[in-house]
Design a protein around this nucleic acid. Sequence first.
DNA 1: TATTGTTATACTCTATAACTATA
DNA 2: TATAGTTATAGAGTATAACAATA
Lengths: 154, 154
Amino acid sequence: MTPTPARSDPLTHEVVELIGSVVARYHEEYELAAAEHALTGAQARVLTLLTREPTPMRQIARQLKCEPSNVTGIVDRLEARGLVERRPDPGDRRIKVAAATERGRATAAYLREGLDFAREPLAGLTQLERSMLRDLLQRMLGEEPGAPEPGETS
Amino acid sequence: MTPTPARSDPLTHEVVELIGSVVARYHEEYELAAAEHALTGAQARVLTLLTREPTPMRQIARQLKCEPSNVTGIVDRLEARGLVERRPDPGDRRIKVAAATERGRATAAYLREGLDFAREPLAGLTQLERSMLRDLLQRMLGEEPGAPEPGETS
DNA sequence: TATTGTTATACTCTATAACTATA
DNA sequence: TATAGTTATAGAGTATAACAATA
C-alpha cells in the first residue's frame, strides 16, 4: 500500500520544495555569473570542465549528458574567443582534445569568484552546521561508502 | 584581508560542490520526467505553475524570469496539445490568463509522480535528519524570519 | 566494422525590438 | 502615455541522421 513511504510525508515534501528553490537560485546565479563574462551556461560549464582537465570532445558530451554533435558548436564558440583550443591526441588521430587556454583559465577563475551562491548564505551557518549539511547532502546523493548505487559498472 | 571568511574554507567549498551535484541531478531528473510526457523543461515548469493557479502571461514571465515574448510560444505549444487554455480577464481586456485544462492537470500529476528525486534519497534519512536538512536549507535561502536579506525593498 | 568528430537539419528557448489592443 | 500580449528576428542549445577520417 505504501511502496514509497516518504511520498506522502509533509516534511519530505517541504524538503523537496526547498531543494527546488535551491536549484532555481543556483541556476539563476550561475547564468548571471556566466553572462557577466559573455558566456552562456553551457559555455561556462564546458570552460570550467576544461580548466580542470583537457578532455576529448566525446567525453565532454558524456559529462554534459548531451549529444556529441552539440559539443562541436560550444567548443567552436569558446575557441573563437580564444578561451579554448583543440589539440590532437598523440595516440589516436581521430580524437581532438579540447583544452582551456591561459585566457580561458583566467576567465574561469573570475567566473568562480563571481559565483557567490552558497558561499555567502553558508557564511550564516556555523562550522558544525555546515558539516551537518555536508553529511546530509552526501547521504542524499548516495556518495557514502557502503551505499553503492546500482548502475555503477566499475 | 578576509572580506568573505567562507571563501577559502575547505568545508564550505565541499558543501558548494555538493550543492552543485544536487542541482545537476535535480535538473537531469526533471528534464527526464518532463520528456516522458513529451514536454520540455520550460513547458513542464509552466504547466506546473498553471496547475497551481491560473496566471496572466506577464506574470508567468516574471516567475520564469524570462522575457514575456517567450511565454507566448511556450503557452502556444501547451495550448496546441490541450494542456492549457487562454482565458480573458473580466476586469482588463488586455490581459490573457493562462490556465491548466483538466488534461493539463492530469499530466502535471503524472509528472509530479515521476519526479522521484529527493523523495527516494530522502527516504534514507530519519525524520530528525530530514527536519535538520529542512532547517539548514531554509536558513541558506534566507527564508527565516529574523534574517531579512538586504535587497528586499518591501 | 566500429569509433571520433563533424555537418546538416529541425525544434525549442532566449532576448531584443516593433507592433496591436487596450487602459 | 503606459501596459499586456504578440510578432518578427537572430543566436544558442538540443537531438537525430548522415558523413569523413581513423582505428
